[in-house]
């Protein structure tokens, strides 16, 4: 019995970080109707930045989160402000294909750029708390996973309240619902897009530092994470923070349980199959709202 409880906890802990990555994707998808195909590759970049800072300066990864999220916010903001906004302006379709192509190119550029620069060897860090466990009965909880989970959860909830309560958050949600009417209400759409995309990439930056203490990073992990985030966004319904949080936890649990009962590969396949099924039967997500 305890082995199942152990898997459940492990799944929840990794799922919390998945959720944070996916919330960013979901926000961009909800507000700008664009899919950032390079989400996972930007995560990989953030992990490498964290790795580099940790090995060079010995700063704790949990302190690096401030830096990575700020830097990645800037990258996201600039990318949207200078490049993506111009591509979007030309598009008439509701779901711009050219942004998808552009970010697919960006992803390819980043992952293979890292491959060319640092090679294909995976790297990981050893911190003071690496391998530390908290024992509760038969259950062992990895300390870094727990810390990362808690920070991820706090940040996701903070984003939720920011979107619900703050003036800026309300403006972002209004733009997501109907960009034309939001513009008529005096909301600066360009600024909202910049900030929304900045937040989206900042969450990826944050997650990169959170994953580093217990996750091995190599140039190729981006695609996997991109896809997991897509799955989570589809499960949760685009634009929904709570949905993405639930989706992230669900995917984490499926992975761990699938790995326990079958094998890791089958668990991965299970995630993709569930994804296709949800797309087909509940295209607005398990808790998504109906399209307007």
């Amino acid at each position: 019995m305890s082995i199942y409880l152990q898997s459940l906890i492990d799944g929840l802990l990794i799922g919390g970080v998945y959720a944070t990555i996916a919330v960013g994707l979901s926000l961009a998808f909800g507000v700008m109707r664009i899919i950032n195909w390079a989400q996972g590759e930007l995560l990989m970049i953030s992990m490498f930045i964290s790795y580099w800072i940790f090995t060079k300066f010995g700063i704790d990864p949990y302190l690096i989160i401030f830096l990575t999220s700020a830097v990645m916010f800037g990258i996201g903001y600039l990318l949207q402000n200078t490049v993506l906004s111009n591509i979007l302006a030309r598009e008439t379709a509701r779901e711009p294909v050219s942004v998808l192509l552009f970010t697919a190119g960006l992803g390819m550029f980043l992952s293979n750029g890292v491959l060319a620069l640092v090679g294909s060897n995976p790297v990981s860090v050893i911190t003071r708390y690496s391998g530390k466990m908290i024992q509760a009965g038969d259950i062992y909880i990895s300390l870094p996973k727990l810390i990362s989970f808690v920070i991820a959860l706090i940040c996701t909830l903070a984003l939720y309240f920011f979107l619900q309560k703050s003036e800026m958050g309300r403006a972002i949600r209004a733009t997501a619902q109907n960009r034309r009417i939001a513009t008529l209400m005096g909301i600066n759409q360009k600024k909202i897009y910049n900030i929304a995309f900045g937040i989206s990439i900042a969450l990826v930056g944050l997650s990169g530092s959170l994953l580093l203490p217990y996750y091995t990073v190599s140039y190729s992990i981006g695609a996997t994470f991109s896809f997991k985030s897509f799955v989570i966004v589809v499960l949760g319904g685009k634009g929904s923070v709570v949905g993405a949080l639930a989706g992230g936890l669900i995917v984490g649990i499926i992975e761990k349980f699938g790995g326990l009962i079958f094998s890791d590969t089958y668990a991965q396949m299970g995630v993709f199959i569930i994804f296709v099924l949800v797309l087909l039967f509940k295209p607005n997500g398990l808790m998504g709202e109906k399209e307007m």
Partner: peptide, 26 residues
Amino acid sequence: TFRLSGSYFSLSTVAVLHVIRLFVLS
């Protein structure tokens, strides 16, 4: 999958690719 629109269609094609790749791989 052709019932799905835009990006969802693209995602579903990648998902099927991954399922079959993992299946052959394992």
